[in-house]
Protein backbone atom coordinates (compact mmCIF):
# COMPACT_ATOMS: atom_id res chain seq x y z
CA UNK A 1 0.00 0.00 0.00
CA UNK A 2 1.22 3.51 -0.77
CA UNK A 3 2.60 5.25 2.30
CA UNK A 4 0.28 8.24 1.96
CA UNK A 5 -2.70 5.88 1.90
CA UNK A 6 -1.42 4.16 5.06
CA UNK A 7 -1.23 7.58 6.74
CA UNK A 8 -4.69 8.59 5.47
CA UNK A 9 -6.17 5.33 6.73
CA UNK A 10 -4.65 5.93 10.17
CA UNK A 11 -6.08 9.48 10.25
CA UNK A 12 -9.56 8.27 9.31
CA UNK A 13 -9.34 5.59 12.01
CA UNK A 14 -8.26 8.15 14.60
CA UNK A 15 -11.10 10.48 13.64
CA UNK A 16 -13.64 7.83 14.64
CA UNK A 17 -12.34 8.09 18.22
CA UNK A 18 -12.05 11.89 18.24
CA UNK A 19 -15.13 13.58 19.73
CA UNK A 20 -13.96 17.01 18.60
CA UNK A 21 -13.71 15.88 14.98
CA UNK A 22 -17.08 14.15 15.12
CA UNK A 23 -18.61 17.32 16.61
CA UNK A 24 -17.24 19.50 13.81
CA UNK A 25 -18.33 17.00 11.15
CA UNK A 26 -21.90 16.84 12.56
CA UNK A 27 -22.03 20.65 12.77
CA UNK A 28 -20.82 20.91 9.15
CA UNK A 29 -23.43 18.41 8.11
CA UNK A 30 -26.20 20.37 9.82
CA UNK A 31 -25.05 23.62 8.18
CA UNK A 32 -24.98 21.94 4.78
CA UNK A 33 -28.36 20.28 5.23
CA UNK A 34 -29.82 23.51 6.62
CA UNK A 35 -28.66 25.56 3.65
CA UNK A 36 -29.97 22.87 1.32
CA UNK A 37 -33.49 22.71 2.63
CA UNK A 38 -34.08 26.33 3.65
CA UNK A 39 -36.50 28.14 1.38
CA UNK A 40 -36.09 31.89 1.02
CA UNK A 41 -38.92 34.22 0.19
CA UNK A 42 -37.07 36.89 -1.77
CA UNK A 43 -38.50 40.40 -2.01
CA UNK A 44 -38.77 41.43 -5.63
CA UNK A 45 -37.16 44.70 -6.63
CA UNK A 46 -34.75 45.73 -9.35
CA UNK A 47 -32.14 46.76 -6.77
CA UNK A 48 -32.15 43.43 -5.00
CA UNK A 49 -28.86 41.77 -5.90
CA UNK A 50 -30.26 38.39 -4.97
CA UNK A 51 -32.54 38.67 -7.99
CA UNK A 52 -29.55 39.00 -10.26
CA UNK A 53 -28.09 35.61 -9.47
CA UNK A 54 -29.52 32.15 -9.72
CA UNK A 55 -30.34 31.97 -6.05
CA UNK A 56 -31.11 28.29 -5.91
CA UNK A 57 -27.78 27.20 -7.33
CA UNK A 58 -25.99 29.78 -5.18
CA UNK A 59 -27.51 28.25 -2.05
CA UNK A 60 -26.64 24.82 -3.35
CA UNK A 61 -23.06 25.93 -3.83
CA UNK A 62 -22.98 27.30 -0.29
CA UNK A 63 -24.50 24.08 1.05
CA UNK A 64 -21.85 22.06 -0.77
CA UNK A 65 -18.83 24.20 0.13
CA UNK A 66 -19.67 25.29 3.70
CA UNK A 67 -18.62 21.95 5.20
CA UNK A 68 -15.39 22.23 3.21
CA UNK A 69 -14.63 25.57 4.85
CA UNK A 70 -15.43 24.32 8.36
CA UNK A 71 -13.42 21.14 7.89
CA UNK A 72 -10.48 23.04 6.43
CA UNK A 73 -10.53 25.38 9.43
CA UNK A 74 -11.16 22.99 12.31
CA UNK A 75 -10.40 19.40 11.29
CA UNK A 76 -7.55 19.42 8.77
CA UNK A 77 -5.18 21.66 10.82
CA UNK A 78 -5.75 19.52 13.91
CA UNK A 79 -4.71 16.38 12.06
CA UNK A 80 -1.28 17.91 11.50
CA UNK A 81 -0.95 19.88 14.72
CA UNK A 82 -1.67 16.78 16.81
CA UNK A 83 1.23 15.02 15.05
CA UNK A 84 3.47 17.88 16.18
CA UNK A 85 1.96 18.16 19.65
CA UNK A 86 2.29 14.43 20.39
CA UNK A 87 5.63 14.36 18.50
CA UNK A 88 4.37 11.47 16.37
CA UNK A 89 5.62 13.47 13.38
CA UNK A 90 9.15 12.53 14.53
CA UNK A 91 8.24 8.86 14.30
CA UNK A 92 6.80 9.41 10.81
CA UNK A 93 9.94 11.21 9.66
CA UNK A 94 12.30 8.42 10.75
CA UNK A 95 10.01 5.90 9.02
CA UNK A 96 10.09 5.40 5.23
CA UNK A 97 7.38 8.10 4.91
CA UNK A 98 8.46 11.54 3.71
CA UNK A 99 6.85 14.86 4.56
CA UNK A 100 5.18 14.73 1.12
CA UNK A 101 3.62 11.36 2.05
CA UNK A 102 2.39 12.86 5.33
CA UNK A 103 0.83 15.88 3.59
CA UNK A 104 -0.70 13.69 0.86
CA UNK A 105 -2.16 11.38 3.52
CA UNK A 106 -3.70 14.29 5.43
CA UNK A 107 -5.03 15.75 2.18
CA UNK A 108 -6.70 12.48 1.24
CA UNK A 109 -8.29 12.17 4.69
CA UNK A 110 -9.42 15.82 4.46
CA UNK A 111 -10.99 15.20 1.03
CA UNK A 112 -12.87 12.18 2.39
CA UNK A 113 -14.22 14.26 5.31
CA UNK A 114 -15.24 17.11 2.96
CA UNK A 115 -16.94 14.99 0.33
CA UNK A 116 -18.67 12.68 2.80
CA UNK A 117 -20.08 15.55 4.89
CA UNK A 118 -21.02 17.68 1.92
CA UNK A 119 -22.43 14.66 0.06
CA UNK A 120 -24.78 13.75 2.89
CA UNK A 121 -25.73 17.43 3.31
CA UNK A 122 -26.68 18.03 -0.31
CA UNK A 123 -28.87 14.95 -0.44
CA UNK A 124 -31.36 17.19 1.37
CA UNK A 125 -31.32 19.70 -1.46
CA UNK A 126 -33.65 17.61 -3.61
CA UNK A 127 -34.06 19.13 -7.06
CA UNK A 128 -30.73 20.95 -7.12
CA UNK A 129 -28.86 17.76 -6.35
CA UNK A 130 -30.53 16.11 -9.31
CA UNK A 131 -28.64 18.56 -11.54
CA UNK A 132 -25.28 17.16 -10.40
CA UNK A 133 -23.16 16.03 -13.31
CA UNK A 134 -19.71 14.50 -13.64
CA UNK A 135 -18.45 18.07 -14.09
CA UNK A 136 -20.08 19.15 -10.80
CA UNK A 137 -18.50 16.22 -8.97
CA UNK A 138 -15.13 17.08 -10.48
CA UNK A 139 -15.52 20.68 -9.26
CA UNK A 140 -16.45 19.44 -5.78
CA UNK A 141 -13.40 17.16 -5.75
CA UNK A 142 -11.16 20.03 -6.88
CA UNK A 143 -12.75 22.28 -4.26
CA UNK A 144 -12.09 19.78 -1.49
CA UNK A 145 -8.40 19.62 -2.51
CA UNK A 146 -8.24 23.42 -2.38
CA UNK A 147 -9.94 23.80 1.00
CA UNK A 148 -7.90 21.00 2.56
CA UNK A 149 -4.71 22.63 1.28
CA UNK A 150 -5.72 25.96 2.79
CA UNK A 151 -6.30 24.21 6.13
CA UNK A 152 -2.89 22.57 6.04
CA UNK A 153 -1.07 25.72 4.99
CA UNK A 154 -2.82 28.22 7.26
CA UNK A 155 -1.71 26.49 10.44
CA UNK A 156 1.62 25.07 9.27
CA UNK A 157 3.46 27.32 11.70
CA UNK A 158 1.32 26.24 14.69
CA UNK A 159 2.75 23.86 17.26
CA UNK A 160 -0.25 23.40 19.51
CA UNK A 161 -3.98 22.78 19.14
CA UNK A 162 -4.64 26.07 20.91
CA UNK A 163 -2.62 28.01 18.34
CA UNK A 164 -4.32 26.17 15.48
CA UNK A 165 -7.80 26.89 16.84
CA UNK A 166 -6.88 30.56 17.31
CA UNK A 167 -5.72 30.96 13.71
CA UNK A 168 -8.33 28.69 12.14
CA UNK A 169 -10.95 31.46 11.93
CA UNK A 170 -8.93 33.53 9.46
CA UNK A 171 -8.99 31.14 6.48
CA UNK A 172 -12.59 30.34 7.37
CA UNK A 173 -13.60 34.01 7.00
CA UNK A 174 -11.59 34.42 3.77
CA UNK A 175 -13.03 31.27 2.20
CA UNK A 176 -16.61 32.17 3.14
CA UNK A 177 -16.07 35.66 1.76
CA UNK A 178 -15.11 34.05 -1.55
CA UNK A 179 -18.19 31.85 -1.47
CA UNK A 180 -20.69 34.64 -0.78
CA UNK A 181 -19.06 37.17 -3.10
CA UNK A 182 -22.03 36.96 -5.49
CA UNK A 183 -24.37 38.22 -2.79
CA UNK A 184 -22.52 41.52 -2.49
CA UNK A 185 -23.60 44.52 -4.58
CA UNK A 186 -22.38 44.15 -8.16
CA UNK A 187 -19.41 46.30 -9.13
CA UNK A 188 -18.43 47.07 -5.55
CA UNK A 189 -14.78 46.78 -4.54
CA UNK A 190 -15.60 43.94 -2.19
CA UNK A 191 -17.22 41.95 -4.98
CA UNK A 192 -14.18 42.44 -7.17
CA UNK A 193 -11.93 41.42 -4.27
CA UNK A 194 -13.98 38.27 -3.66
CA UNK A 195 -13.31 37.16 -7.23
CA UNK A 196 -9.62 36.76 -6.42
CA UNK A 197 -10.36 34.23 -3.70
CA UNK A 198 -10.11 30.73 -5.22
CA UNK A 199 -13.20 29.58 -3.31
CA UNK A 200 -15.13 32.01 -5.54
CA UNK A 201 -13.86 30.28 -8.68
CA UNK A 202 -14.86 26.90 -7.25
CA UNK A 203 -18.32 28.24 -6.45
CA UNK A 204 -18.74 29.77 -9.92
CA UNK A 205 -17.62 26.55 -11.61
CA UNK A 206 -20.04 24.48 -9.54
CA UNK A 207 -22.97 26.75 -10.34
CA UNK A 208 -22.14 26.79 -14.04
CA UNK A 209 -21.95 23.01 -14.05
CA UNK A 210 -25.31 22.79 -12.27
CA UNK A 211 -26.94 25.21 -14.73
CA UNK A 212 -25.46 23.37 -17.67
CA UNK A 213 -24.01 26.73 -18.72
CA UNK A 214 -20.40 25.63 -18.58
CA UNK A 215 -18.66 26.93 -21.67
CA UNK A 216 -15.09 25.97 -22.47
CA UNK A 217 -13.65 29.48 -22.23
CA UNK A 218 -15.08 30.20 -18.77
CA UNK A 219 -14.26 26.69 -17.66
CA UNK A 220 -10.65 27.06 -18.75
CA UNK A 221 -10.18 30.42 -17.01
CA UNK A 222 -11.68 29.37 -13.67
CA UNK A 223 -10.22 25.86 -13.74
CA UNK A 224 -6.71 27.12 -14.52
CA UNK A 225 -7.04 29.82 -11.87
CA UNK A 226 -8.16 27.21 -9.33
CA UNK A 227 -5.46 24.72 -10.31
CA UNK A 228 -2.79 27.42 -10.06
CA UNK A 229 -3.95 28.28 -6.55
CA UNK A 230 -3.94 24.61 -5.55
CA UNK A 231 -0.42 24.13 -6.93
CA UNK A 232 0.81 27.24 -5.12
CA UNK A 233 -0.87 26.31 -1.84
CA UNK A 234 0.53 22.77 -1.80
CA UNK A 235 4.02 23.91 -2.81
CA UNK A 236 3.98 26.40 0.04
CA UNK A 237 2.58 23.79 2.42
CA UNK A 238 5.36 21.32 1.64
CA UNK A 239 8.00 24.04 1.91
CA UNK A 240 6.53 25.28 5.17
CA UNK A 241 6.34 21.84 6.83
CA UNK A 242 9.84 20.97 5.67
CA UNK A 243 11.04 24.03 7.57
CA UNK A 244 8.91 23.69 10.69
CA UNK A 245 8.48 20.02 11.63
CA UNK A 246 11.94 19.67 13.15
CA UNK A 247 11.53 22.66 15.47
Amino acid sequence: MKLWLVIARKDLLQAVHNRYFIGVLIFSLLISAGLSIFEFDLPTSEENVLQQVDFQTLMFSLAAFSPFALISAFVVPMMMVEEKEWQTIRFLLVSPASIVDVIAGKTFAGIVFCLATSGIGIIFSGEAASGLSVGSLAVLALGSVLFTGVGLLSTSFCRTSLQANTWAGIPLIVLFFGLIGELLPRGSELTELAKFIPAHSASVLLRMSLNGSLNMEELAIDAIYLAAWIAAIYSLTIWSYRHTVHD
Binding site: M1, Q14, W86, R90, F91, V94, S95, P96
Partner: peptide
Protein backbone atom coordinates in the same frame (compact mmCIF):
# COMPACT_ATOMS: atom_id res chain seq x y z
CA UNK B 1 14.82 4.24 7.83
CA UNK B 2 14.80 0.48 7.23
CA UNK B 3 18.12 0.06 9.08
CA UNK B 4 17.24 1.97 12.22
CA UNK B 5 14.62 1.94 14.94
CA UNK B 6 14.14 4.90 17.25
CA UNK B 7 12.64 4.93 20.74
CA UNK B 8 12.02 8.57 21.51
CA UNK B 9 12.31 10.07 24.97
CA UNK B 10 8.72 11.33 24.70
CA UNK B 11 6.03 8.59 24.38
CA UNK B 12 4.99 9.67 20.88
CA UNK B 13 2.26 7.11 20.27
CA UNK B 14 -1.19 7.58 18.78
CA UNK B 15 -3.12 7.72 22.02
CA UNK B 16 -6.58 7.27 20.49
CA UNK B 17 -5.53 4.06 18.77
CA UNK B 18 -5.04 0.70 20.42
CA UNK B 19 -1.64 -0.92 20.94
CA UNK B 20 -2.38 -3.26 18.05
CA UNK B 21 -3.44 -0.39 15.76
CA UNK B 22 -0.25 1.55 16.60
CA UNK B 23 1.88 -1.45 15.69
CA UNK B 24 -0.22 -2.23 12.63
CA UNK B 25 0.31 1.32 11.37
CA UNK B 26 4.08 0.96 11.87
CA UNK B 27 4.06 -2.46 10.19
CA UNK B 28 2.27 -1.00 7.15
CA UNK B 29 4.73 1.89 6.93
Amino acid sequence: SHMIGVVFEYPNLYLRLTAYQNLHFAAQL
